[in-house]
Amino acid sequence: METLLTIILGFMIIGAIYALHAKDLLSAVIAQGIVGYGLVICFLHLSAPDLAIVQIVVETITLIIMVAVVLDSSREEIKSPPSWRSTINVVVGLVFIGFMLYFFDMATASLEPFGEHTLRMSQTYTQQGAAQTGAANLVTGVLWDFRAYDTLGEATILFTAALGVLTVLRMKGKK
């Protein structure tokens, strides 16, 4: 299981790197689709069908919106002559990434190995969740009964984001 997931993740990383370096913005958007749909396959193998359904639809709609925006504006990636400033940016970024990898190495020591997760908080959710909420889908039970505050907060964020899009696009700017 772990090797299969590692191979899929490798493809996703290659797609991500290509998306950042593509010359054409349209192909960058399509390469971002590699990462999104690879994620769907990973979710299916991690036995999370809820997440797979949501992610496959969300990825499609994200691609539609991104392609619409790119076709409406320019497709050209910005060509910039190599300067000392961009070199410094790259070097600082790489050093920072090295530091973060080192600290992540320290942080993963406290995690359990892959596949041997012990249920601490959700022991009651899986054992008595169905009897208490009456929902056969335990994820929905957690979503709307045990953790309903969180879900309400997320729904509010969605509402606020829609309002934000309306506000940003309706403003009459100075021409």
């Binding site: 069908p49 809820d50 797979a52 949501v54 639809v57 969300v58 009456g134 056969a136 929905t140």
Partner: peptide, 14 residues
């Protein structure tokens, strides 16, 4: 949504 995979978020986007 309370019986099969899916639910409010997936169905809403569909």
């Amino acid at each position: 949504g309370h019986l099969t995979p899916g639910g409010a978020f997936a169905g809403g986007i569909i």
